[in-house]
Computed example of a mutant assay.
Amino acid sequence: MIKSDYLPSGFLQPLQDYLRQRALPAQDLLHELDACLESPNVPSERFCELLDAVWHAAPVSALGIRLGLATHPGQFGVVGYLVSYCGTLGQALARYYRYQRLLQQGLDSRGELKDGVLYMRWTQAVAKTPLATEFSIAVFVSLCQALIGRAITPVRAGLPFARPANADVYQALLGCPVEFDRPAIELAIPEYLLALPISGKDPYLLGLLEKQAQALLNQLPQLDTSAAGASFQRVQDQIVESMKNGDVSAAAVASALNYSLRTFYRELRSAGYSYRGLLAHTRHTLARQYLADPALAQTDVALLLGYSEQSSFIRAFRSWTGMTPGEYRSHLARKAGQVTG
């Protein structure tokens, strides 16, 4: 059991900004925040104490949500910079899960794709006060929004404490229904967001930061990682490779990764993924890239994605985007015309 834990000290910056912007009489607290910000990490228990102290200086509803939404990726330490250089939000979240222990060693999070929705839930071994859990869910929403450069509307959220009298404030701030008394922090977002691009994509810097993150992760005490399962990126890469052979069945991908089909499914479930969801995400991402290339016929795109029939590709693409492939290309042409005009 983890009795002590640490967070990136950058998470204290919104607390300091909040006090200063409101000119609150809290000089001693500001000095404490200054001192903590000089170190790369802050003990989770100390973070909770400082968060509580800010609330006492300005006791407003859902303060943790307000402060968490004011964060940016740079305050996540190496993990924040790493995910900022990924290609899509889905790739960024895969790395978030892989390196989450660099944010909090006692952070345990899971994700599951189901019926077009990514359901996430996590617990924090130490930073589990109501204010800290509020902050945690808002920080995650803020990270996703910053990466794709647009506001997101979650499907629902859940918090592990009793429903407060002013519960409507939480829904207004997060933009979705919020449930209380949940067993963990919970957030559900539409699956299509995973395919959205990240403007700061940089494969070279991503590679460098992954090496740094892995080196830092190796320095942490080892936990049982059997539940981590097959990594999102490794399976996705193999799906792309299998498309060349025209066989993207789970059996073919599992065999190429040296898994039995039963073990493959079990490890994907343990990591919070489904093969159907990963395949759809990969096809959706590639379809948008291929359709943006006028040299590729629509039939060629369907074959490149491993569809034996074009009608199956059209149905799938409409389910992802609400448009047929032809309508999507017309949409791209109109946008290009507006830019050049």
Rank of each mutant, 00 (worst) to 15 (best):
residue 5 D to S: 09
residue 8 P to H: 02
residue 10 G to T: 01
residue 12 L to V: 01
residue 13 Q to L: 09
residue 15 L to M: 14
residue 17 D to W: 08
residue 20 R to K: 15
residue 21 Q to M: 08
residue 22 R to P: 01
residue 24 L to A: 10
residue 24 L to R: 11
residue 26 A to P: 05
residue 29 L to Y: 12
residue 35 A to T: 14
residue 35 A to Q: 14
residue 37 L to D: 09
residue 39 S to G: 08
residue 40 P to H: 11
residue 48 C to A: 15
residue 49 E to N: 05
residue 57 A to Y: 12
residue 64 G to S: 10
residue 67 L to W: 12
residue 68 G to A: 09
residue 76 F to V: 00
residue 76 F to E: 02
residue 84 S to G: 08
residue 88 T to E: 04
residue 88 T to L: 03
residue 92 A to D: 06
residue 94 A to M: 03
residue 95 R to T: 07
residue 98 R to E: 14
residue 101 R to A: 10
residue 105 Q to Y: 15
residue 106 G to P: 04
residue 109 S to G: 15
residue 109 S to H: 05
residue 111 G to T: 04
residue 112 E to N: 13
residue 116 G to R: 05
residue 117 V to I: 14
residue 118 L to R: 15
residue 122 W to A: 10
residue 124 Q to D: 05
residue 124 Q to Y: 14
residue 126 V to Q: 09
residue 127 A to K: 11
residue 133 T to Q: 14
residue 136 S to T: 11
residue 141 V to D: 04
residue 142 S to A: 15
residue 142 S to W: 03
residue 143 L to A: 08
residue 154 P to E: 04
residue 157 A to H: 11
residue 161 F to M: 01
residue 165 A to L: 10
residue 167 A to Q: 13
residue 168 D to F: 14
residue 170 Y to L: 07
residue 172 A to R: 15
residue 177 P to E: 05
residue 185 I to H: 08
residue 188 A to E: 15
residue 194 L to H: 13
residue 198 I to P: 06
residue 201 K to F: 10
residue 205 L to G: 01
residue 210 E to D: 11
residue 211 K to S: 09
residue 211 K to M: 05
residue 216 L to T: 02
residue 219 Q to F: 00
residue 220 L to E: 07
residue 225 T to S: 15
residue 227 A to T: 10
residue 230 A to K: 02
residue 231 S to L: 10
residue 232 F to Q: 13
residue 238 Q to V: 02
residue 239 I to E: 06
residue 252 A to C: 03
residue 253 V to R: 06
residue 260 S to Q: 09
residue 269 R to D: 03
residue 271 A to V: 00
residue 274 S to C: 02
residue 295 A to T: 12
residue 296 L to V: 01
residue 300 D to G: 09
residue 309 E to Q: 14
residue 310 Q to W: 07
residue 313 F to N: 04
residue 320 W to M: 00
residue 325 P to R: 03
residue 336 A to H: 12
residue 340 T to S: 10
